[in-house]
Computed example of a mutant assay.
Amino acid sequence: MTTATYPAPVVATYGSTDPAAPLVVLLHGRGSAEHEILGLAQHLPVGPAYAAVRAPIAEGGGYAWFANRGIGRPVAASLESTMAWFRTWLDDVAPAGRPVVLVGFSGGAAFAGGLVLDDPARFAGAAILYGTLPFDAGVPTDAGRLADLPILVAQGDGDHVIPRELLDRTWDYLLAESAATMATLRRPGGHGIDAETVHALGEWITTGWLGSTDDR
């Protein structure tokens, strides 16, 4: 699989049109599309530019970020290829010096995690919402990999979509091994972005991706 097999990115935007404004990239879940997650932007802080990108692989009436070998377990070659496709788009819209923050939900969270683990210096922060990092998928997960990078992780104790072992491994790695600057939200609900999550995400963005919403 090569990047040439993928269509040109389809992107929906909201907020600032200043090409120097911080860019918040919204990454939808598996089987969804860009217009669904773009609705988050109207509830988030004014100031950044928001861009929701459509994943490049058609699947189930929607789109996916990578081929799976199981829920939350990307095929390494597929993830590598789609990340290269994404970075080609990103480097065009956000050249060096423009802050870029990733906000990923479910499958989009795994994709966001892959991007920051692959190249932490490229990003100003990432929100991993109700998903897993892409373990055992060709991206580094060594200790200290995300040193000082602002990360928000949100999980639901009643999430039965993402395997619990992957949610726990993600939580433990981010808080105990990654050395990221962490903000956390753990709630009793399931697999979905609710008002509490939107509030936590907005606070994290407002405080420069360095706030804490630790409700453990």
Rank of each mutant, 00 (worst) to 15 (best):
T184V: 01
P150H: 03
G208A: 13
L90A: 07
G31S: 10
D157C: 09
V116E: 03
A41P: 11
S81K: 08
Y50I: 02
V100E: 04
V100P: 05
A179K: 05
V25T: 08
L115V: 11
D168H: 12
G158C: 13
W85C: 01
G131Q: 00
P134E: 05
L117T: 07
A67Y: 10
H199F: 13
D159A: 00
V53Y: 04
V161P: 04
L149S: 03
T181L: 15
R187C: 00
Y50Q: 03
H35G: 14
S16Y: 11
V101F: 09
A4T: 15
P99D: 03
P48S: 02
A180T: 06
A143N: 09
G72E: 07
V161C: 07
G138V: 02
A41K: 00
G138H: 10
G104T: 09
A137R: 08
M182W: 12
D168Q: 04
A58Y: 09
A121Q: 08
A33G: 07
A67F: 00
A183R: 05
D172H: 14
P22C: 13
A41M: 04
E80H: 15
P22E: 15
P95D: 00
A58F: 01
A52M: 10
G125A: 01
T3V: 15
D172K: 12
L129I: 10
D172C: 13
G31M: 06
L38F: 04
A55P: 10
E34M: 11
A8V: 11
G156I: 09
V53L: 12
D91A: 05
E196N: 11
V153G: 01
P95W: 09
Y50M: 02
A51P: 00
W204Q: 03
A137L: 00
T206F: 12
S78L: 03
L185Y: 01
P120R: 01
D148Y: 14
A180N: 06
P7N: 04
G60L: 09
A200G: 14
A33M: 05
A77Y: 07
P7F: 05
D18N: 12
P140T: 01
A94K: 06
G107C: 08
F66A: 00
V24G: 11
P56S: 02
A147V: 00
E165W: 05
R164M: 14
L175A: 07
P150M: 02
D119Q: 13
S16N: 08
S212P: 06
H43G: 12
A49T: 02
R216P: 14
W204D: 02
Y130C: 12
A112C: 09
L174A: 04
E203V: 15
D214R: 11
A126P: 11
Y173K: 02
T5F: 12
V53F: 10
A51N: 10
D136F: 04
P140H: 08
G211V: 02
T181D: 14
H28E: 08
P9D: 02
G97C: 12
A64S: 14
L149F: 00
L167V: 04
V153F: 13
P150E: 01
A112G: 08
A96S: 14
A110M: 04
G208T: 10
G72Y: 03
L201E: 03
G15W: 14
P163L: 01
